Simulated assay, not measured.
Amino acid sequence: MDTSPTAARVLPARHRTVLFWASVACAAALILVPAWMLAGNPAVLGGHPLLPGILLVAAAAGVVWAILLWVRRDVPRPRSRVRAVGAWAGRIAVLALAAGLAWLSPFAYQPGQAAEAGPTSDLAVTESATAITMSPEGRTATKGLVFYPGARVDAKAYQDILAPAVGAGYRVVILKEPLGLSLLDGSQARSAMADNPDIRTWAVGGHSLGGVSASSFALANTDVSGLVLYASYPIESLRGRTGLSVLSVSGSQDGLSTPAKIQASRDLLPVDTEFAAVQGGVHAFFGDYGAQPGDGEPGISRQAAQQQIAAATVSFLGQLQRN
């Protein structure tokens, strides 16, 4: 029997076989997860281009890996135990990547009955790779709202609930966030404002995690006159931010941004902040994307809740003064 150091370091054949099939599983995951997301969720291709770009790269890597595995399937490849540990670590990382990509699949827009509040009109909607812009048709808007969606929520899910604000004469820009996470580009509102130079008075807003980014943006940018928080709260104090009006709308049955969290946020917001609570409202009622894991049980219909949310938003925007 060969007892040389080289032979002692070679991985047994059955272990190499297991490693081979682990490679097959990794290649399949890199192909199937992007295929499932791209084909099965319209919000992926309709959102920020970063996610579909990453999915296409992952799928291409999976195809190349699968081809190499097929071509080299009969080629014996002795592998030391040290290299095997590294190989297993790499394959675990690939599977974790595939799982992470699957988690990033956004909550897609589920059309509902649009909320109605205040004056209405036809809307002019334009869409780019990074934003959805809604303007009142036939009217000149001088005030605008840049809105950050909640984490992994389709930007289109906020069109209906924000449409009444457009009908009342305000321009609304809903951001398409990179990977559906506003924290990856918290200053994205600046580009939207620059693309609409005719708007003289700006508010920023957001739902859930999007509201956190909107709060930070409002704190750092003094040309923002208003902040609209949907089931959200800041992580930094805005008490010292002068010239900023704030509206905080929450749901009494929200299981994520709970009433206790909203109450605690009062100390971080200006003393004249306007608070509105939708009795029976839940986290997912601030957009149209279906139910959300971890949310509470609603005690009001989605339509009735959204009418209250939209009415509070329209009223708040009407009171904004230019900084």
Score class of each variant (00 low, 15 high):
P293G: 05
F275S: 11
D223C: 08
L30G: 03
F275E: 03
E127S: 12
A29G: 11
R171A: 04
A165R: 01
P136C: 09
D160L: 13
S105I: 04
A22R: 12
A35F: 14
S121E: 01
S105E: 08
A117V: 05
T120V: 14
F20P: 04
R79D: 00
L32T: 11
P136I: 13
M1L: 14
E116N: 14
P178M: 05
E137R: 14
V249R: 00
A114E: 01
D288L: 06
V82W: 09
A284K: 15
S187F: 03
A66T: 15
V94Y: 00
Y158F: 15
M134V: 07
P149W: 13
P49V: 04
I235D: 13
G138E: 04
I235S: 12
D267S: 07
A192W: 03
L38D: 03
T17D: 02
L104F: 06
V24F: 11
S182G: 12
E236R: 13
A66H: 06
E297H: 15
A117Q: 04
H48E: 01
A214V: 13
Y148F: 14
W103K: 10
S237D: 09
A27E: 05
F107Y: 11
G226E: 07
Y109A: 13
T130N: 05
G112E: 08
E236I: 08
Q306C: 04
S208Q: 06
A124E: 09
A151Y: 13
H207K: 14
V228I: 14
D2Y: 08
G280N: 02
A96R: 08
S80R: 05
G281W: 02
W70E: 10
A27C: 11
R77N: 12
R91V: 11
L269I: 00
G318V: 07
A7V: 15
R190F: 01
